[in-house]
Simulated scan of single mutants.
Amino acid sequence: MPKAFTPKVVTANALLAGDVVYLTADDAWSPDLRQAELLTDEAHAQLRLVEASTRHAEVVGVYLADMVPGDKGPEPTHFREEFRRTGPSNHRHGKQADL
């Protein structure tokens, strides 16, 4: 029996900067997970993934990441996505400098 679909966001890495980015509802890439479009329909999520995967001049490594709805937007369900959201752990720079 197939696993039930869970909410997801489209995520990738920005081609030039390498930063983690998330696809918003208005087709922009944002480094802020709170702005990501939370996809709750499996067919729509697959369509958004296919569309995002064609944007080779902007991003690489496009995939769907599991999330849950949160008070301030999507929240990761897996450590990997939490780590990607907060950035490198070796120094306080980039995203971590803003915390």
Rank of each mutant, 00 (worst) to 15 (best):
K3M: 14
A4W: 03
A4M: 11
A4D: 15
P7C: 04
K8N: 09
V10N: 05
V10A: 01
V10L: 05
T11L: 10
N13C: 01
A14G: 00
L16V: 05
L16P: 00
A17N: 11
A17H: 07
A17K: 08
A17F: 05
G18Y: 00
G18D: 00
D19R: 06
V20G: 09
V21Y: 00
T24L: 04
T24W: 03
T24Y: 04
A25T: 08
A25R: 12
A25W: 08
D26T: 08
D26V: 04
D27M: 09
P31N: 10
R34P: 03
R34A: 15
Q35G: 03
Q35L: 13
Q35E: 14
A36Q: 11
A36M: 14
L38F: 02
L38D: 02
L39D: 06
L39Q: 02
T40K: 12
T40S: 15
E42C: 03
E42L: 02
A43L: 13
A43G: 13
A43W: 04
H44V: 08
H44M: 04
A45W: 06
A45G: 05
A45I: 05
A45E: 03
Q46C: 07
Q46N: 15
L47I: 07
R48V: 06
V50K: 12
V50R: 14
E51T: 14
E51H: 14
A52P: 15
S53V: 10
S53N: 15
S53H: 11
T54G: 10
R55V: 11
H56L: 14
H56S: 13
A57M: 10
A57Q: 12
A57H: 14
E58P: 03
V59C: 04
V59D: 01
V60E: 14
V60L: 12
G61H: 07
V62S: 05
Y63K: 12
L64D: 06
A65R: 13
A65L: 13
V68N: 12
P69T: 06
P69H: 10
K72T: 06
E75F: 01
P76E: 02
T77C: 09
H78I: 11
H78Y: 09
F79T: 11
R80W: 07
E81L: 09
E81T: 05
E82M: 13
F83W: 10
R84Y: 13
R84W: 11
R85F: 03
G87V: 02
S89Y: 06
S89Q: 12
S89V: 12
N90M: 10
N90R: 14
N90I: 03
H91M: 10
R92L: 07
R92V: 02
H93I: 03
K95Y: 04
Q96F: 00
Q96D: 00
A97N: 01
D98Q: 13
L99N: 09
L99D: 12
